[in-house]
Design a protein around this nucleic acid. Structure first.
Lengths: 125, 125
DNA sequence: GGCGTATTCAACCAATAGGTTGACTCACTG
DNA sequence: CAGTGAGTCAACCTATTGGTTGAATACGCC
């Protein structure tokens, strides 16, 4: 799973990971600090952090034996952009449809429109 | 995996599924239409659609034997809200930190700041 | 009623994800 | 230098995911 967007979305698809992100908005934290509230092993949390790091959501520095985890919300922009783009396009299309339906109220008086989209030559397989 | 946010993020973590969403912003489409460009089986695409539907990204109506798939970008709002919230908080915290660092330039004249974050009483365990 | 088209259901398979435990490394501390 | 605390690595297990093929279902059309 190479592409950044896939990794980013996948990283946030886990509630524990989202919770970690939420807590990191308050302050950087060490692995053990982050692990404390959850009833999974430290290693499991370490794995979660690796996933987050790999997705670019988080960076880890070194401070003696600590590995302070720091949130890097840049990737969020990428996701937001994707979401915004298609949310908006879907919305615009909806508007356009409304407009269209408002435009031809006498063309097709009472019948339901047969197809929203033309058959567009399916491959007969 | 019950919670809506997890389902939504997971649904978009797959490039094929994101592509389907992208194409649905242009127009509703049937399963076979959607499946055409990919070199996976129709059934695989059907499964993808089930995932998207389950995540609330897509709705399916019935038109004879067709099952036209329609994008419902409402869930995107939920995701965007989550992302925005933490993106912003992270940003704010960053600003606050800058401010703080700008405030005490003579307290610690040349030494590197020992800790970005105070030790904040680790549980000694 | 029988045929073809559109789609789903079911069983199966390989790879991945999320979790576990145990051993190891690394850096401070006494 | 021995001990301790913080993390990671490795091997393993189970459930889920994304894919497959083959059979079943649901409509519309001669």
């Amino acid at each position: 799973m190479a592409d950044p967007l896939s990794k980013a979305f996948a990283a946030l698809a886990d509630p524990t990971r989202r919770d970690i992100v939420a807590r990191l908005t308050m302050a950087d934290a060490t692995v053990s600090e982050l692990a404390a509230p959850y009833d999974v092993s430290l290693q499991a949390v370490s794995k979660h952090l690796k996933v987050l790091e790999d997705a670019g959501v988080v960076t880890r520095s070194r401070d003696a034996q600590r590995r302070p985890v720091h949130l890097d919300a840049q990737v969020f922009d990428l996701m937001t952009k994707w979401l915004e783009r298609y949310r908006q396009q879907a919305h615009e299309r909806y508007e356009r449809l409304d407009e269209l339906l408002a435009d031809l109220p006498d063309d097709v008086p009472t019948e339901p429109p047969p197809h929203t989209h033309p058959p567009e030559q399916r491959t007969p397989r």
